[in-house]
């Protein structure tokens, strides 16, 4: 188990939770916990997401999150700096 905590600033607009939750679901990333709250800026909300990587790389999860237009910034809490692992390739499959 590899649990990381991300602090994600997002545009405070309808559907933003669905965008983030949908991304995690369709890319098979596991959310352990998710908390959404306001910030001093009423146009921006803060999400704190605990992600259980289980084979995914944190770098990839963050890069995919960052592609959401409504996501403004992402930073990892607790562990500090983000390290990218050398072997983050996908498992083999027959498609």
């Amino acid at each position: 188990m590899s649990i990381h905590t991300l602090e994600v600033l997002v545009e405070n607009e309808p559907g933003v939770l669905a965008r983030v939750a949908g991304l995690f679901a369709r890319r098979a990333y596991n959310i352990d916990t998710l908390v959404v709250g306001p910030t001093e800026n009423s146009e921006i909300s803060k999400m704190v997401i605990q992600v259980n990587l289980e084979g995914h790389s944190l770098e990839q999860v963050m890069a995919q999150l960052d592609k959401l237009i409504t996501v403004i910034s992402i930073k990892e809490l607790i562990d500090g700096a983000v390290k990218s692992s050398k072997h983050d390739t996908q498992p083999d499959y027959q498609n």
Binding site: S57, Q60, A63, D66, K67, K86, D88, T89, Q90
Partner: peptide, 10 residues
Amino acid sequence: DPAEINKNKF
């Protein structure tokens, strides 16, 4: 697209 980097191949 930065998300393509290291997605499938390092």
